[in-house]
Design a protein around this nucleic acid. Structure first.
Lengths: 202, 202
DNA sequence: GCGCGCACTGCGGATATCCACAATTGTCGA
DNA sequence: TCGACAATTGTGGATATCCGCAGTGCGCGC
């Protein structure tokens, strides 16, 4: 988990420098990249922050980079900058999940406000993701049989009913149940249901 | 719950007729309104479908109507149409929750596809809302005391612990518990947790 | 062969949950 | 005043959950 930065990707060095200076004047840490390819080559999922992305660049475009990042489940909010955009392009980007879309020239304060807001969004997303990853790791510790028993538990069934349906002894259900609670770090079926509900709607 | 329609709001009668004809040719039912005020006067929360909304109209604008509808918790997806829009306007509308944003003149097929997609979104939202309303109605049936006990149950506590914390007899906790499950239509604390989790993330 | 993990089982005892039956008290509205 | 509802409580009995202790069998890797 790296420190949150605003990542600036633009082939225009003057623009990179201007954005760099602007954001740093508002205490936002930055890193800059001259091309989509260069950024992508160094991207990894633990980079945190947001991405300020020029659309029109030689080689890979901003939109193409965005697609690539989405394919890789990148969580960072993306703010598109464009000097020659149009409404359909803006609408399509936002509907695809981009965080914002600005035309150049832009209002300095407005841009920084949006970057700061995007960083907050990233932070919230990342906290959720860390939590979700932890639960997923616990689930991965369950044996196949435990997983089956867990589904029945979550369906609110009595141990006796579970035993009947799985054609095993009730004592066995109890053993699996205890092991599930232990591995999942919960003390009751309600705790378990709440824990799993918390990652289900993400 | 009325039948799902595409509601067309545009001051330009020729546009209303053209949209009407276009959508009906693809079996989409429609209704038309010549002004934002006229639509708003007849709007009620059980109207289902989607809204095709011209931005620029005399009197109340499409954007103002959108704000009004959001204030009233309107679920219908809104598709904005504009002959004179710009990127910031489109971005702002989408970030505020509009479903789509199209420039005139538009591609006929593209518009109808988006309307059909918006109708599906409305349908899904409405199903969720009906379910959520039902749970909320059940919750409204609980007495104040029952509500308190329910929070403890959902925290996974033993009846004995709940009794201690609330300074009542364990038998009283059991009575409340049984009443809660009955009113909520569940048979166990797990069922209850799952039921409430289902409406929590909406 | 040995150790480990998984799946399974039984016994006995303790605690938790559930509930029929019964009752009391207080508040509110007709 | 009366009836409905909410909050509370006790008794006794049935069922459900939990678990220590003990054990078996199978598959897998070293």
């Amino acid at each position: 988990m790296s420190e949150p930065l605003a990542y600036i990707v633009d082939d225009d060095e003057a623009m990179r420098d201007a954005l760099n200076w602007l954001l740093r004047s508002r205490q936002v840490k930055t890193a800059t990249w001259p091309s989509a390819e260069a950024f992508l080559a160094e991207w990894h999922e633990d980079l945190s922050g947001c991405l300020i992305l020029d659309i029109r660049m030689p080689g890979m475009s901003g939109l193409e980079l965005f697609d690539q990042l989405q394919d890789r489940r990148c969580l960072m909010p993306v703010i598109f900058l464009t000097g020659h955009g149009d409404i359909p392009q803006a609408v399509a980007a936002l509907k695809k999940g981009a965080y914002d879309f600005l035309e150049k020239p832009f209002d300095d304060n407005s841009l920084v406000d949006r970057v700061i807001a995007a960083l907050a969004v990233d932070s919230a997303r990342r906290s959720k993701q860390i939590h979700s990853d932890e639960i997923t790791a616990r689930l991965a510790q369950l044996s196949p049989r435990e997983r089956q028993v867990m589904q029945h538990i979550l369906a609110g069934k009595f141990n006796k009913v579970i035993a009947d349906e799985m054609q095993i002894a009730m004592r066995t259900v109890e053993v699996h149940r205890a092991r599930i609670f232990e591995k999942m770090g919960v003390r009751s079926a309600v705790d378990l249901a709440q824990l799993l509900a918390g990652i289900k709607n993400q």
